[in-house]
């Protein structure tokens, strides 16, 4: 349960409850014919109901993270994988199934420092803060995730905010070779905005953070094949400057 809370959580000193979740996890009872559902309520509204407790817990995890992403003050949450390489962040924006976690994991295996596989958390200066939740690795062809620690990949977790060195917009395609084209700052900004959680809720703050984030970043876009090969090419390109 604790591992499903957003990274950096801490007990609140205030007794005021902003949003309440209620989880009802039923005990498995093989003797009974009654199907016992597991339930999740968010703010008094039923948010999930399933026989599989894991499905309900996953809904809790993603709902809490999205809630934090929407409400976070002075931070803009962008769906992206993030690693650090030579003092700068490599940001991989994208929705699920675009392969961002796979590429993030390969970058970590290749020596980059892990920041997040889910959110690039931007401040007003465009720096990325760590959001080191467990990596949600998918088996090829499966929707279910396995949680993996960065340390299990031989990596370490970053702690300091970073300027962005590179933004990688990629989509996995079987057999593709990584030959990306360069994007302008404006084009890159739209790619980032398309994955920004509070884009409509706080557009002014979102644009300010994105403006600062992309200003000095190298932005590339393309189809990639195997993540391991792509990760090597990306790190070599950055090392050469």
């Amino acid at each position: 349960m604790i591992e499903r809370l957003p990274p950096g959580w801490k007990p609140a000193p205030s007794p005021v409850v902003v949003n309440m979740y209620s989880l009802l996890i039923s005990k498995p009872d093989t003797a009974s014919r009654i199907r016992r559902f597991n339930l999740l309520y968010a703010g008094g509204i039923r948010a999930a109901r399933a026989l599989d407790a894991e499905a309900v817990l996953h809904t809790f995890e993603s709902d809490v993270q999205l809630y934090v992403g929407i409400l976070a003050r002075r931070r803009i949450f962008v769906h992206a994988g993030v690693v650090e390489w030579q003092g700068k962040a490599i940001v991989i924006p994208g929705r699920s199934m675009s392969g961002k976690t796979t590429l993030t994991a390969e970058l970590v295996r290749a020596g980059a420092t892990y920041y997040s596989d889910e959110y690039a958390v931007l401040d007003a200066r465009g720096r990325v803060h760590p959001y080191p939740r467990l990596l949600g690795m998918r088996t090829p062809g499966e929707g279910e995730q396995t949680k993996v620690r960065a340390e299990e990949l031989g990596g370490k977790v970053g702690v300091k905010p970073l300027p962005i060195g590179m933004i990688v917009v990629s989509q996995y395609e079987n057999g593709a070779r990584w030959r990306p084209k360069k994007l302008s700052a404006g084009q890159g900004a739209l790619e980032v905005l398309a994955n920004t959680v509070p884009a409509r809720i706080r557009p002014e703050e979102s644009l300010t953070s994105i403006q600062q984030a992309v200003r000095n970043a190298s932005i590339v876009k393309g189809r990639r094949g195997e993540a391991k090969e792509t990760a090597q090419i990306i790190l070599e390109a950055l090392s050469k400057g």
Binding site: A48, R49, G143, A194
Partner: peptide, 25 residues
């Protein structure tokens, strides 16, 4: 001029597995 429709928070949310999706209300 390149244009996109800004995502809603839910649209920008990550997609989920079938069992989690089927559990969600």
């Amino acid at each position: 001029v390149i244009s996109i429709v800004a995502p809603t928070a839910a649209n920008a949310q990550t997609s989920i597995s079938p069992s989690v999706c089927n559990a969600r209300v």
